[in-house]
């Protein structure tokens, strides 16, 4: 396993000293899960989010990245999005929703065994573009889909 954090997590769950530290509030779950890209998910604009999650904002628009979305979503709380990277060696896909309070919705990290498509449901505040940023070979490729939302899904 290449991710040392996961090993730490497992060790943390097994070790009672850490459990005590957690219950004492010394070590919150947030600190344990430090590798969750908090900064990227809290970013209020796409550039910051992209920089935080992919390390670059140089994006090549590519027709190969297929983003399948419904044209009209009656309920913005459940918008099904399918991304087909169609790029050899795709490492990850980041889903960005342009009109949401925080732009980044999800980030998927592929392995060699899983890289041809991903389907997920996201919330959308209002009609906007859904962009998929595919990372492959150190470059970023993007694909877009537009969804018209008739009822917003972020509540409030």
């Amino acid at each position: 396993m290449k991710n040392p954090r996961r090993i730490f997590l497992r060790a943390a769950l097994a070790s009672s000293t850490v459990a005590v530290a957690v219950s004492a509030g010394l070590l919150t779950p947030q600190t344990v899960l430090a590798a969750w890209p908090k900064k990227a998910f809290e970013a209020k604009d796409e550039k910051t989010a992209l920089e935080a999650i992919a390390g670059s904002t140089d994006v090549i628009e590519s027709g190969d990245v297929k983003v399948k979305t419904p044209d009209i979503a009656e309920n913005g709380a459940v918008v099904s999005v399918t991304v087909e990277p169609n790029i050899p060696g795709a490492e990850s896909v980041a889903l960005l929703v342009a009109e949401n309070p925080t732009k980044l919705a999800a980030n998927f990290n592929f392995s060699k065994q899983s890289s041809s498509f991903i389907t997920c449901r996201v919330k959308m505040r209002k009609s906007s573009d859904v962009t998929a940023i595919v990372k492959a070979g150190g470059k970023l490729y993007s694909g877009k889909g537009h969804v018209k939302v008739t009822l917003g899904g972020c509540g409030g």
């Binding site: 918008v79 925080t102 919705a105 999800a106 998927f108 990290n109 592929f110 899983s114 449901r121 919330k123």
Partner: peptide
Amino acid sequence: LTCDWGTAVS
């Protein structure tokens, strides 16, 4: 497959 999700997931 590992996924990092934010609040915008349904």
